[in-house]
């Protein structure tokens, strides 16, 4: 039964990918990307990787779809005709694909218990992490504690993405004399329902943020969900009102604050006599120290992801609004 579900999901994934290649209407392509992400999230669920599925659903299907739609608002929704011959690219793709397939021939068999992945660090995580870190959700122990340095790098990458978008686009505030003609004034139902739902979305983001130690979730997902709540607000009520709720300047403070909060935990643990990001030194009891460290760095991740996603959306949306005004 599980094999059948996997096969159906994989087949749908392949069909979606092929449609994405051949469609010229970019709006439909963005929607298909969302479907693609949901399908991969379902595959992750069937592989018991709930945290990854959660991330894929919230980041891949949620925020990226909104951001790509924002890009489409700036660039137009049809693909340009490609006049060049596609023979050479096709050859390159075939050769690369053949090389990759040849490379997989030497890989160990799928799912075999003697594979290197199952013998290297995984047994240590599974056997020792309840004692060393003491969290029910092992994924969070690995992500935030054993691989804390990697996660710091990921947070810095997210922050760097915001810097890139800001330096290319920037957030333009409208001047006061332009009448704000944004938001969905006609959609009374949407306005009421959005007002009703946004508090619950923010509440759920906080739950995901602080329950990440015990269940699926964590800073990345929580930041994205919270950003989605404010993006919904900005879409329904218009950018000027959203700027009054959380201004771009405040987001520019929040984004580095999260990264610095994360890194300062590492520095503090060095100051206490341990290694960088060695949470054992944060409290007299090593396991309690691990708990403090993980909660604080997850908070840092959540704050940075929230601020970065929202400010990227602000950048796209304010540009699109400006080009509509002109």
């Amino acid at each position: 039964m599980a094999v059948l579900i996997d096969l159906v999901l994989l087949a749908m994934l392949a069909i979606t990918a092929l449609r994405v290649i051949f469609l010229k209407d970019l709006f439909a392509v963005v929607m298909l990307f969302g479907i693609y992400s949901f399908l991969s999230a379902l595959i992750f669920v069937s592989l018991d990787a709930v945290d990854v599925a959660f991330t894929e659903a919230s980041v891949g299907a949620g925020i990226s779809t909104v951001l790509m739609l924002g890009t489409l608002a700036l660039t137009g929704r049809t693909e340009k005709e490609n006049k060049h011959s596609s023979l050479l690219p096709f050859l390159v793709v075939v050769v690369t694909g053949a090389a990759l397939v040849y490379g997989t021939l030497d890989m160990p068999p799928f799912g075999h218990p003697d594979n290197p992945v199952h013998e290297h660090v995984a047994p240590r995580y599974i056997e020792q992490s309840p004692k060393e870190v003491g969290l029910p959700n092992m994924v969070t122990s690995v992500l935030a504690s054993y691989r804390g340095f990697d996660t710091l790098g990921e947070t810095v990458v997210v922050f760097a993405a915001a810097i890139g978008v800001m330096s290319l686009l920037g957030i333009r505030r409208r001047s006061e004399d332009e009448t704000p003609e944004s938001g969905l004034k006609e959609h009374q139902v949407l306005r009421v329902v959005a007002k009703l739902l946004i508090p619950f979305v923010v509440l759920f983001a906080l739950y995901v943020q602080f329950h990440g130690d015990f269940g699926p979730g964590g800073g990345f997902q929580a930041g994205v969900i919270a950003a989605a709540a404010f993006i919904l607000y900005a879409l329904v009520y218009g950018l000027p009102l959203a700027f009054q709720v959380i201004g771009p300047k405040f987001l520019q403070l929040l984004a580095p604050f999260g990264v610095l909060l994360y890194a300062s935990v590492g520095l503090y643990s060095m100051f206490k006599g341990g290694l960088f990001l060695d949470y054992n030194t944060l409290a007299s009891d090593p396991v309690a120290g691990q708990h403090y460290g993980i909660i604080i760095i997850e908070l840092g991740v959540g704050i940075t992801v929230f601020a970065v996603m929202l400010s990227i959306f602000y950048a796209f949306a304010s540009q699109a609004e400006r080009s509509n005004v002109q």
Partner: peptide, 20 residues
């Protein structure tokens, strides 16, 4: 609870935008 609120709203918004 949330499906009962969001899914009709989405359909309504879709149809209304098309009218608009």
């Amino acid at each position: 609870f949330f499906l009962m609120i969001t899914s009709p709203t989405a359909s309504h918004a879709l149809a209304k935008s098309a009218r608009h």
